[in-house]
């Protein structure tokens, strides 16, 4: 089977098991799980637990939050005796800063600006996430995407989007 050299080999075990040490990833993972479980558990406190015949809305979430906390705890404890060590690696800050806001921006403006300007700007924002994208290229790409989407979704399929919204003067 030809494998691409760029693909990392399956994680799992190395040739010789290294001595146990603490795994930072799992420490963070365990802590985060416990925190999440705590948040859900806290939100559950206001809910009615009910009885076995009529389980309340809090019954199931309470059990699940408890279970999640336990799992987090076990992962946390086990992390100090780990045999795998994998670095967290680089973090896509620029990607996060520009990719994640794109749908949010679309949501905030689609009803006000209208579908056409909103999808254009959202695509423009997203395309800036790559270092390789030149400004002119981004503009061209966004225009093409906008025209395509307007033709397909608004004109051909007749989705109930307002093409230009009330925020615009025309």
């Amino acid at each position: 089977m030809p494998t691409d050299p760029k693909i990392p080999a399956p994680p799992a075990a190395d040739q010789t098991p290294p001595p146990p040490r603490s795994d930072k990833t799992d420490i963070v993972a365990g802590l985060l799980l416990m925190l999440t479980a705590g948040l859900f558990g806290w939100q559950t406190t206001g809910l009615n637990i009910g009885t076995t015949l009529r389980m309340g809305p809090g019954y199931f979430p309470a059990i699940l939050s408890g279970l999640l906390f336990l799992l987090g705890l076990v992962i946390f404890v086990k992390s100090f005796r780990s045999t795998t060590e994998e670095p967290i690696g680089r973090i896509a800050w620029r990607g996060m800063l520009l990719i994640l806001p794109a749908p949010v921006f679309f949501g905030l403006t689609v009803r006000g600006l209208g579908f056409v300007p909103s999808i254009f700007l959202a695509t423009l924002i997203a395309s800036m996430a790559s270092m390789r994208m030149k400004p002119l290229m981004a503009l061209v790409l966004s225009v093409i995407v906008t025209i395509f989407s307007a033709l397909v979704f608004s004109y051909a399929l007749g989705l109930p989007f307002r093409r230009f919204g009330p925020w615009l003067p025309f």
Partner: peptide, 9 residues
């Protein structure tokens, strides 16, 4: 990927 993002939205 910008196309993907637009279609997703």
């Amino acid at each position: 990927f910008p196309i993907i993002m637009a279609m997703c939205a």
